[in-house]
Design a protein around this nucleic acid. Structure first.
Lengths: 275, 275
DNA sequence: TTGCTCCTCACGTCACGTGAGGTGGC
DNA sequence: TTGCTCCTCACGTCACGTGAGGTGGC
């Protein structure tokens, strides 16, 4: 025989919550005055309230709490639900930890008063491409740019000749040539179909990245060094390290190359035992 | 000049999100066809989208993101906002960690197929009480119970005599007597006012607990040992340890003592370097 | 008579997801 | 003509918080 106010005080919940639990059938008052609508609760109902709050504390939704309270949930199923919750919470913590690392990376870059890029970490799916390769002197933009441009022009022609439609923006990536100093430039266009006949280009599947640090760069790739530096610093500050060859996605390639928009994707992995 | 579909693909967001950002003014399309309502975006707007998504990733609300994007937020204020976010995320992680510990404690108790209590960890505020003390032979319920009952009866009379209203349910706690084996039993009733004159009881302030493991027990305190054992196991499993004398709050004390409802509060602290 | 507690609507929260129902260009 | 993309409402989500407006017992 407790008023809703006392019951709320003892249970350390709000009166509004008790009304909500009444409405939704989670916890009905022991008695409701038909004239005034006043709710009254019995002290023994505190046990149910306590259980309810405990389950909520574990992160179950009210819908789940209701199941657990009302249906005689067998221990086996309860175990299953708890294991699921365990995994969900672990996942949440991983997300929070990444977020925290990113916030701190940003703070660190501000403290250094250095240029910074807007970096995201996302998965990159695998993609089937038509690919042409060429050789450049070095990773220097002056050496790379003309080769990339020529390759994409050639690849565009070859695709048109083969009557294939590009299925997305161009992708460039780079590997070391066998002879030390040189660089192999790979120019790729996503495609959906296989070609009908033999062509100058090859069909490859670029692998997925589980995690890649991704940033956008607006401007000619002739002046891309600063963005790579900023990206590199960010990756370090956020507790990652590179995990493979990066890619450049040409999202927009207008005549004026200063208007180019390029997405840079660097596969990364978390540095374990970091900090 | 991108359709909303392409813009969404490149930015790795949903079309619905872009419409939402348009509606709320976070990111307006570069152009909207007045006839059809078709939105078109410029590639350079990908930079703003990227920044937007990056800020959202840091956990800022869209309202905050809007500020950060539009108003020229000075570096100093940005630092402040990031520090605040850092604290918020740390807090979230602490909450998640506690939750995880509780889920695991429950799983462990299920695995042991042992009795379990619905335990919550909450702060307990300080409380001013009128207090009487007595001596009991040991912590055994048979020794404690009669002493507690007598003390509360006496205290009730004394309060009535002093014309003071109890401000809440009775609280009992226990300390060691100077001579080894005996126990000092403290019976307390919360009060608001100070007494007018001298009385048989004393006025004390029971300290707050920052964290206490709290559980409800329905039944006579004569048989409270199992619940204390279950509570003790839970505390251990969840990575806590006791941090002071526990209290028993008599939420309901009907004539039939088997109908009693008691809240047990054990102050706890987290075991550091636990697991 | 003044406080205090209780009541019932019902809107607001936050960032979209998800249909419903319909239109324009290849 | 069939798909595909685009459009505008507008409800649903989740667990309450927060008034608004009014009533019953000391």
């Amino acid at each position: 025989v407790l008023t809703i106010g006392d019951f709320a005080r003892y249970g350390r919940v709000s009166v509004r919550m008790l009304r909500h639990y009444d409405q939704t059938g989670l916890l009905r008052p022991a008695h409701v005055d038909p004239a005034t609508g006043y709710r009254s609760y019995s002290a023994s109902q505190l046990a149910r309230l306590n259980r309810l709050v405990a389950l909520k504390e574990l992160g179950f939704t009210l819908r789940q709490v209701r199941q657990l309270l009302d249906d005689g949930v067998p221990a086996e199923q309860l175990r299953g639900m708890l294991r699921l919750r365990e995994a969900e919470i672990e996942n949440q913590m991983a997300v929070s930890a990444a977020r925290l690392a990113h916030v701190r990376a940003r703070l660190a870059l501000i403290a250094e008063e250095t240029a910074h890029a807007d970096v995201l970490v996302k998965p990159i799916p695998a993609v089937r491409v038509a690919e042409l390769s060429g050789i450049a002197r070095s990773m220097d933009p002056d050496s790379i740019s003309p080769v990339v441009q020529d390759l994409f022009a050639e690849l565009g022609c070859a695709l048109a000749t083969a009557r294939m439609q590009p299925a997305g923006p161009g992708i460039a990536y780079y590997t070391d040539a066998e002879d030390e100093d040189h660089v192999v430039v790979h120019a790729c266009m996503p495609v959906n179909d296989a070609p009908d006949s033999a062509n100058s280009f090859s069909i490859n599947d670029l692998p997925a990245f589980r995690e890649a640090a991704v940033t956008l760069y607006a401007g000619s790739m002739d002046h891309c060094l600063p963005i790579y530096q900023a990206l590199g610093r960010w990756i370090e500050q956020a507790g990652y390290r590179g995990a493979g060859p990066h890619r450049e996605i040409t999202l927009s390639c207008p005549p004026d190359r200063n208007q180019m928009v390029t997405e840079i994707q660097v596969p990364v992995e978390q540095v374990v035992g970091g900090q």
